[in-house]
Amino acid sequence: MTYRVRIENADGEVVTIEISADELREKGLTLEELLPPNARIVEVEEVEP
């Protein structure tokens, strides 16, 4: 499974990243732990691999 994640950074700019569930598991991280300081998740969407 892959996630498309929209993130708002500290400057108010919204960027989109895609990350797979396998990648998260391998790194032992959650989506929140990948965020840079002062950023927030705006939207998470599951996409087909």
Results as ranks from 00 to 15, higher is better:
Ala39Val: 13
Tyr3His: 08
Ala39Arg: 04
Val47Phe: 12
Ile41Cys: 04
Glu45Ser: 09
Glu23Ser: 07
Val5His: 00
Glu23Leu: 13
Glu18Leu: 14
Leu34Trp: 15
Arg6Trp: 14
Gly12Asn: 03
Ile19Gln: 00
Ala10Thr: 08
Leu34Arg: 03
Glu26Asp: 10
Asp22Val: 10
Thr30Met: 06
Arg4Trp: 07
Glu18Ala: 05
Arg4Phe: 13
Pro37Tyr: 04
Glu23Pro: 01
Met1Glu: 06
Leu34Val: 12
Pro37Ala: 10
Thr30Tyr: 03
Leu24Glu: 00
Leu24Tyr: 03
Val15Gly: 03
Ile7Ser: 01
Asn38Lys: 05
Ile41Arg: 03
Val42Leu: 15
Tyr3Gln: 08
Glu13Asn: 12
Ile19Tyr: 05
Arg40Trp: 12
Ala21Phe: 11
Asp11Thr: 09
Pro36Leu: 04
Tyr3Val: 15
Gly28Cys: 06
Ser20Met: 06
Pro49Leu: 13
Leu35Asp: 00
Val14Glu: 08
Leu31Thr: 00
Gly12Met: 02
Leu29Cys: 10
Ala39Asn: 04
Asn38Ser: 06
Met1His: 12
Val47Asn: 04
Ala39Phe: 14
Val14Gln: 11
Glu26Met: 12
Leu24Thr: 01
Glu8Gly: 02
Lys27Asp: 02
Glu8Leu: 14
Glu46Gly: 06
Asn38Val: 02
Glu33Met: 13
Ile19Gly: 00
Lys27Val: 05
Leu31Cys: 07
Thr2Gln: 10
Asn9Gln: 12
Asn38Glu: 06
Met1Pro: 15
Val47Thr: 05
Glu13Asp: 09
Val42Gln: 05
Thr16Ala: 03
Glu8Phe: 08
Ile17Cys: 14
Ala10Lys: 08
Arg6His: 14
Asp22Cys: 12
Glu43Thr: 12
Asp11Asn: 12
Glu43Trp: 15
Ala21Ile: 10
Glu18Phe: 15
Arg25Leu: 11
Asn9Lys: 15
Met1Ala: 08
Asn38Arg: 07
Leu29Phe: 07
Arg25Asp: 06
Ile17Phe: 11
Asn9Glu: 04
Met1Arg: 13
Glu23Ile: 09
Val15Lys: 06
Pro37Gly: 05
Glu23Met: 13
Ile17Ser: 00
Thr16Met: 11
Val5Trp: 01
Ile41Lys: 03
Gly28Leu: 04
Ser20Glu: 04
Leu24His: 01
Val14Arg: 06
Pro36Asp: 04
Lys27Gln: 07
Leu35Ser: 01
Arg40Lys: 12
Val47Gln: 05
Arg4Ala: 03
Glu46Ile: 15
Asn38Cys: 10
Arg4Gln: 06
